[in-house]
């Protein structure tokens, strides 16, 4: 469990994190979403006390990070992709981290195997691809078999197979009752992986919501229609209580109706329907709209307070 309370961080005049309060619960994957520069990485650094908060605090399983004993056994973190000495081998990198927390060599070999780096474990990190570096970072996070995992953009640089692998791994870890927080700026990726979403923009909380609710609210399904007699089709559907909007591209979008229903209307009214496609609104669009609104809202506040 991770609890942030009124967490705030200023870097000089810049506010990176602005009064964030949230709880990350165990047993599920929580997605930490926001556009680039929203404050995700800063928040994660604050969790590990790499940076000190300007005000507020964040606790992991009831304690500040610095109060944990042998913290790698309690919290595993993947921060930036480049967090290893380029001249050191992957094995020695992990071994040095493991030693400080009295984690065995056997476990080091085990995590190397888990992330699939056996063949390059003795090689210097300098030559690693971004994907291999990410796997190394993940191995470091898993070293202490921790009940809490913090992963900053873990899918960066992974190929599609790697993305699927990490998704299964994280879902599995959450199912074991662990707390899993992963950040991303990709809405669709999060929708596929996370059970719960924390969305921030410009350091501020925008939404703290179950993924299914967010999808239901923002990605309502609709049916795209095309007809040479669009106006008549529209009024016929509206007369039967089906909400219809006109899309810019000459198609109609029907909300809250089944395909069969619309087909039947066409037959009853003798109308030609040339396209009848079930669609899902893009989550990415909903996400961009949500975060863009936040920016405008903040702009308004600043204007008013002058």
């Amino acid at each position: 469990m991770i609890e942030a309370t009124e967490l705030t961080k200023h870097y000089g005049a810049k506010t990176a994190v602005d009064g964030l309060t949230f709880t990350v619960r165990p047993g599920r994957v929580t997605g930490f979403l926001g556009p680039n520069g929203a404050g995700k990485s800063t928040t994660m650094r604050l969790m590990l006390q790499l940076d000190r908060p300007t005000s507020g605090h964040v606790r992991i399983n009831g304690k500040e990070y610095g109060e944990l004993t042998e913290p790698l056994r309690q919290v595993g973190a993947l921060l930036e992709s480049r967090a290893a000495h380029p001249g050191r081998s992957a094995y020695n990198h992990l071994l040095s981290l493991a030693a400080s927390n009295r984690i065995s060599r056997q476990r080091v070999r085990q995590v190397i195997e888990m992330v699939g780096l056996e063949s390059v474990a003795g090689k210097r990190v300098r030559g690693f691809s971004l994907g291999m570096t990410q796997r190394l970072g993940l191995a470091a996070a898993l070293l202490g078999d921790p009940p809490v995992l913090l992963l900053d953009e873990p899918i960066n640089g992974l190929d599609p197979e790697g993305v699927r692998w990490i998704r299964q791994l994280l879902t599995g870890l959450a199912a074991e009752g662990r707390t899993v927080l992963l950040s991303s700026h990709l809405m669709t990726e999060m929708a596929a992986t996370a059970d719960h979403l924390i969305i921030i923009g410009r350091g501020r909380m925008l939404a703290d919501i179950p993924t299914s609710d967010f999808v239901a609210q923002h990605a309502g399904s609709y049916i795209r229609l095309r007809s040479p007699e669009a106006a008549r089709l529209r009024s016929a559907l509206t007369a039967r209580g089906i909400q219809v909007t006109e899309a810019g591209d000459g198609t109609l979008h029907a909300l809250g109706a089944e395909l069969e229903q619309i087909g039947a209307v066409g037959r009853d009214e003798g109308l030609i329907i040339t396209e009848l496609t079930p669609c899902t609104a893009s989550l990415e669009d909903a996400f961009i709209k949500l975060t863009a609104d936040a920016v405008e809202y903040r702009g308004g506040i600043t204007e008013a307070s002058r």
Partner: peptide
């Protein structure tokens, strides 16, 4: 080298004291 490589973050996460 801890600072130039970014290793310092992994190091301090492992040893926060």
């Amino acid at each position: 080298s801890e600072y130039t490589s970014g290793m310092i973050r992994a190091s301090l996460a492992a040893v926060p004291t």
